[in-house]
Structure formats: C-alpha cells, structure tokens
C-alpha cells in the first residue's frame, strides 16, 4: 500500500489556488482598468457647460448634455414609477395570491421568458407598438420600453423574496384573522421591505444603463424636448452616438457622460448592497 506524497498533494492544491486566484484577480483588474479609463478620459469633460449646455453642432467645442440628462432622469423616473409597482403586484400574484399553484408557475415561466428576451427585442416591440402607429420617436415610447423591462424583473424578484419568506409568519397573521390585504401590506411586504428595496434599486441601476431599447424608441434630440411626446435624448444613447462620432470633442463628451453614468450606477449599486440585499441577488447582465 503506497501512501500518496503529502508534498505533491499540497503542491497541486497550491497551484490550483494560484490559478483560480488569478482568474478572480482578472475580474478585479478589469474593474480597475475600466475605472482608470473612465476617470482619465471622462473627468476633464465634466465642466459646467457639460451639465448646462445643449449639444453643439459637430466640431464646436461648447456643447453639453443638459437635455440628455433631463431626458434620462425623466424616462428612468417615470418608468420606475409605473414599472416597479406593477412588477410588485405581479410578484404578489405569483408569490402570495396564487402561491404554489400551477397558475403561479405559469406566470413565473412567462417572466422567465421575458427576462431571457434581449432588451433590444423589447425595444423593437415598442417601436412597432408606439413609434410606427404614432409616426415618430418619442419619450413616451422610451418610457414604455423601460417599463416593460422593469416589470418582469421586479415581478420575479418580489415573488422569489416572498416565496423565501417564512410560511409560519403568514400563517400566524392569517390565524389572527387578518385579511389578505392586511397580511400582504402590513406583514409580508414589511418583512421583506429591505430586500425588496435593494432589489428595486438594482433594477433601476440596470435600466438606467439601457441603450438599445431607447435608441429604437426615444432616439435622440439635440434640443430641449418640450414634451415626452417628442424624441427625447438620453445619456446612454448620447454616449453611443458621440463615441462613434469622428469628432474628438464629441468623444470627450461621451467619456464624460459615461463617467457620470457609472458614478450614478455605482452609487445606486452600493446603496443597494448595504440596504440588506439578499445574497448575490445581482442584476443580470444586459
């Protein structure tokens, strides 16, 4: 009977440890490189005109992205206001009203399909739904696209959190004679509110980075949009179009906008992480 060499076993362990650590380190390096590039290229562009001025014609140095900032804020805000409650309601249906039934399963599967749908396809759908009939791109179409992206994600997260929440607690509440309404809003949602809040923050962080669906719906606009029924500029579409522009000052503005967007998303993500997020409930990649 031959004993294996302890030295060899430990050596293999160490080699694998190093390789796997290297892979983890790679992800960290990517983040460092991203942040360095964003700060180096983006910071100089963040001047006062950047925030206050309208886009300048190509080749002119005095442009800003004030309209895109406004457009983004409006569209994200409105779509979150509509999408998050709707998503939570759908999640309530799956996780509470139809808990553990085939109906709930069916709806959950539908949400699964939607969460597997590329957002660009959702954008195409809203284009055919609103842009073609109305004849022009509009902020409303953008809001619709973002809303439709939020709903299934929020529904799934809500349902998941509710399913994980304790059965005993619900039963105790019902045993006291509480109504469904009461249990839902004063027991269930209360118990899971921190998890839910952070999940919603992550969802908002996620839609604020959406580009393709906005490109097909809100498009862009070089002027202050009077109303959301007109094409509406957004930060992400501005980054996309300015980055591919041949003019250097537009590239600079794209970097500035990218830095701004990243800082926003970073802040929201970190807030979400420290408001009691369930483990690894991270935003799926788009």
């Amino acid at each position: 009977m031959k004993a294996k060499s302890l030295y060899q076993r430990r050596l293999v362990n160490f080699i694998m440890l190093s390789i796997t650590a290297g892979c983890a380190l790679f992800s960290f390096l990517v983040l460092v490189m991203l942040i360095i590039a964003l700060c180096k290229n983006g910071y100089p562009a963040l001047t006062k005109t950047f925030f206050t001025a309208l886009p300048a014609p190509p080749g002119v140095d005095e442009g800003g992205v004030s309209n895109a900032l406004q457009g983004s804020i409006k569209m994200i805000l409105f779509s979150a206001l509509i999408g998050v409650p709707t998503g939570i309601l759908a999640g309530l249906y799956i996780g509470e009203l139809a808990r553990n039934t085939r109906k709930a399963d069916f709806v959950l599967n539908a949400c699964g399909i939607l969460s597997g749908t590329p957002t660009i396809v959702t954008g195409l759908f809203v284009y055919t739904l609103i842009v073609i009939p109305s004849g022009h791109f509009s902020g409303f179409a953008g809001i619709t696209a973002l809303t439709l992206i939020i709903i299934p994600v929020t529904a799934r997260i809500t349902a998941e959190i509710l399913v994980q929440s304790s059965t005993a607690m619900r039963e105790a509440a019902f045993a006291l004679g509480a109504s469904q309404w009461n249990v839902t809003f004063f027991v269930l949602l209360r118990a899971v509110r921190s998890g839910l809040a952070s999940a919603i923050l992550l969802t908002i962080a996620r839609i604020s980075g959406e580009t393709a669906p906005l490109l097909f719906t809100a498009l862009n606009n070089n002027y202050e949009a009077d109303s959301l029924s007109q094409p509406t500029a957004s930060i992400t579409v501005t980054i996309f179009q300015y980055a591919l522009s041949p003019f250097a000052e537009r590239n600079d503005i794209a970097w500035g906008a990218a830095l701004l967007l990243t800082l926003f998303i970073l802040a929201v993500t970190l807030i979400a992480r420290y408001t009691g997020k369930p483990q690894y409930l991270s935003r799926p990649l788009r």
Binding site: A205, W255, I265
Partner: peptide, 24 residues
Amino acid sequence: FFGTVIEILSAIPSVIYGLWGLFV
C-alpha cells in the same frame, strides 16, 4: 471584497463596456 467587485462589474452597462472596448 470580490463579491463587491463582481457586483459593480455586473452593474456597469454595456454601452460603457463598448466605449471602453473601442477606445482602450
């Protein structure tokens, strides 16, 4: 620590990865 790194990386939108890809 890596959990946070991964969290941040997965929150960064694709348009920024694209921008970084093009210029870096």
